[in-house]
Design a protein around this nucleic acid. Structure first.
Lengths: 221, 221
DNA sequence: GACTATGTACTAACTGGTACGTCCACGTCA
DNA sequence: TGACGTGGACGTACCAGTTAGTACATAGTC
């Protein structure tokens, strides 16, 4: 690192131009994340992004090369964020059942709190995940939550609390699918079944429900 | 060079025109379903749809008014299709546990077999389901599967097999979320976890897994 | 002075939508 | 039965607005 941080700069004033590449990049990325999450890749407008930035369209192409380049950078950012949090889970101290419940609640809360991430993943799947496939950064991230699950399952098995033998990836999918769906499909589901999935009491009910379902599944008959 | 002078038309394409409004409409709808499911609302191109039709762009606007009008017509079509099949479920003759398993398998198989439907629902959620909200036809379909579930749950409760009290809509969500996710997120999930979710053995494993999970959940501790 | 960062003004291609004219099907009436 | 004419079905060519991307000039920084 070289000249980052410090300097106590007063960054405002379009009056005198300040070169601040790091924050220009961050600014563009933040706005782009919102725009892509809201409108999708083809629906997003580069001009619209530029307008809400404190810089210009020129800079988008200067730093990211193309609309697709920017989109990939956004994907790498949001995937990086979730990985960072995931690897910080500390579930080793809990007993297996409690650990699973906490994991479910973490997943539920994280996805609930990051609808932009959910939307971007949905959007990316519309494109058959071809941009994820293009990004070695994303393709190669070994997802820490899988190791966490594997460890809990092994422990639960050893202790005889979990009688079912299940692949950690499959269990992750069982947990994640419900949490993801609640957010990704909230509008269609909400409209058709006349429910507000954002309401706190429904959220709490669902949070408990998926926890119960997973734990009972693992305990077997 | 104003008016076209080629009155003496090359009568090869003009071989013989047949007026067949019904099939023209169907033709357009079928092509549009694929295009919208593949590229999304903003990614779809009216010209691309017209090209793959046996008619022209003019007819799209003649019958559907606008790109969005066509999109809504597509949504109504696919939602109509699934409702038709759902209302044909006959699970009253099975005992509650078997009925639930069959329902899960039906949902799993239907969503697996209709990725275009899944994709269109995902796309619609990107748009906050605003086109579903616009269509009274879709908005007003009270989904028959909910009644089916309610009936099974009541029966299971009465017989003492299901010890958990659960809202039919919530149970539908538990079932549907997993089946939906497997299809909607197959590309990102497949890329990141290096799995081919389309592979028959994985499909079979997941099909059994969600069935087990749901049944165990309902039976309670 | 050299290299990076930034702003302005522009364009070539695309894209939803339309003006306008033609053709087909079918009922009517001589 | 056959000419006719009317309204819906259809095709061609085109336009006007939009949009990703760029040429060029300049300012900041070490």
């Amino acid at each position: 690192m070289s000249m980052a941080e410090d300097k106590g700069r007063t960054d405002k004033a379009a009056a005198s131009r300040k070169n601040d590449p790091e924050s220009t990049r961050r600014d563009i990325l933040a706005v782009a994340t919102e725009e892509f999450a809201t409108h999708g890749l083809s629906g997003a407008r580069v001009d619209a992004i530029a307008e809400r930035t404190r810089t210009t369209k020129r800079m988008i192409y200067y730093y990211f090369g193309s609309k697709e380049g920017l989109y990939i950078a956004v994907l790498e950012k949001v995937y990086g964020d979730i990985r960072a949090v995931e690897s910080d889970l500390r579930l080793e101290d809990l007993d297996p059942e409690q650990a699973i419940r906490r994991l479910v609640e973490f997943t539920f809360d994280y996805e609930e709190a990051h609808p932009d991430f959910i939307r971007l993943v949905s959007i990316e799947n519309i494109h058959h995940a071809k941009y994820i496939a293009q990004s070695s950064a994303i393709r190669n991230l070994n997802v820490p939550v899988i190791d966490t699950i594997a460890e809990i399952l092994a422990r639960g098995h050893r202790q005889g609390v979990f009688r079912v033998d299940v692949d950690p990836v499959d269990l992750h999918m069982l947990i994640s699918s419900f949490c993801f769906f609640r957010v990704s499909n909230q509008h269609s589901f909400g409209t058709i079944f006349r429910q507000d999935l954002g309401a706190p009491e429904i959220r709490g009910k669902h949070r408990a429900m998926i926890g119960d379902a997973v734990v009972r599944y693992l305990k077997g008959d």
